[in-house]
Design a protein around this nucleic acid. Structure first.
Lengths: 207, 207
DNA sequence: CTATTTTTTGAACAATTGTTTAATACATTT
DNA sequence: AAATGTATTAAACAATTGTTCAAAAAATAG
């Protein structure tokens, strides 16, 4: 095994890493079924047998990429939601900036993950449950407490739903917006920048 | 040609129709690439050569299904948005009920269409542009007029984005909610029923 | 009934798929 | 240097894919 022992140095970016990031690109763009092992190798500019050499199978490689995608989507805000010192409102402010920044860098992530979940193996579902960021977070506990005292109009689950919806659906529907000519890329980015501050405002109206 | 001339009567549900609705089921569940012509025929309980006999190719059949899906998603609210007699607020009330009812019957439609658009042919993009329901609607004209007069705080495009987001993302993320155990099917339906009236309320707060 | 058209079937096809294997090239160690 | 372990390659594989085609079956028309 090369991967496990790792006695050698990495020559520049190692073949293994080149394949992994190529897989990220191709899987994210085309999905699992429409992606071939040869596509990935071509993107990495390597012989296609190396994919199986380093990752054993297409499916194992996909699971790796999908798990990373889920972590990227959820972990980037996890500690933020569990911070005991900040108010729910402050959490919302930070969350929106943090998440939109991340999504602007990886705009295809939400659709990719939604598809991964829809046709998921147990392995991937497990990754999701273990990182069930929102519902087990201190953020939701705070909201439930406020809701219980009558100091929060909206049900916490609806609030979270609205927050995630307004943040991520524009990215899910990004290609639709672009291809219909509703917006161009520059305008899309500008609107997402606006939403960093607008969404917290709208959410607070609901609270 | 059988399809074009149609001299015969339809024996019960014709083979052609059985294939089309089977294709809807399988394509919507598994996507284009993961669907085989043999899967569709099996779902329709027919010989798999009939798929090509009636629809010439897998891709043409998919385009049919996708176009129908887009129409179902957009046409169900098109005339509603172009009604000159109703106020924007009334349109929003009706839209939310109408759309959530439709999505509860076809919950996989949004994710299916988003994927179709992301990897779309020109043919499908055309269908979208021609049914560009929102941005060319009288609804948006009304909003822009109000916004121009300073009688509408939120920018119309953000309003439409928020409306569509809060309505459709829960369906896109439906499998995630169910598989993580955040909600069960009964609770999901109940929440969507609540959102029929809540979303208009939240949107109006933003206006 | 006979003739004709339409529908259905099963076999065959070439292409593409993921995976394996054996040989070769390269790097490291002794 | 030789020996050993690792990385890379090309070829081959069995399976699956969409599509075609000719024959059989069923339905319709004359």
């Amino acid at each position: 095994m090369a991967k496990a022992t790792r006695k050698k140095k990495d020559p520049d970016a190692s073949a293994e890493e080149k394949i992994l990031s190529a897989a990220r690109v191709v899987f994210t763009r085309n999905g699992y079924a429409a992606t071939t092992v040869r596509d990935i190798a071509a993107e990495a500019d390597l012989n296609f047998s190396l994919v199986n050499y380093y990752f054993r199978s297409k499916e194992k490689l996909y699971d790796l990429v999908m798990k990373d995608a889920i972590r990227q989507l959820l972990y980037s805000i996890k500690y933020l939601l569990d911070e005991p010192q900040t108010t729910p409102q402050e959490k919302i402010d930070l969350l929106c900036v943090r998440w939109i920044d991340m999504l602007l860098e990886h705009p295809d992530l939400p659709l990719f993950v939604m598809n991964g979940v829809a046709n998921s193996s147990n392995d991937i579902t497990k990754e999701l449950v273990e990182n069930n960021v929102f519902l087990t977070s201190y953020f939701v506990k705070q909201l439930m407490e406020l809701h219980g005292k009558g100091k929060l109009k909206i049900a916490p689950l609806h609030l979270v739903m609205n927050l995630v919806s307004m943040l991520s659906l524009p990215f899910v529907a990004r290609h639709l917006l672009l291809k219909t000519g509703a917006v161009d890329m520059k305008m899309f980015r500008a609107m997402m920048e606006e939403r960093k501050t607008h969404i917290p405002g709208w959410i607070k109206l609901m609270m």
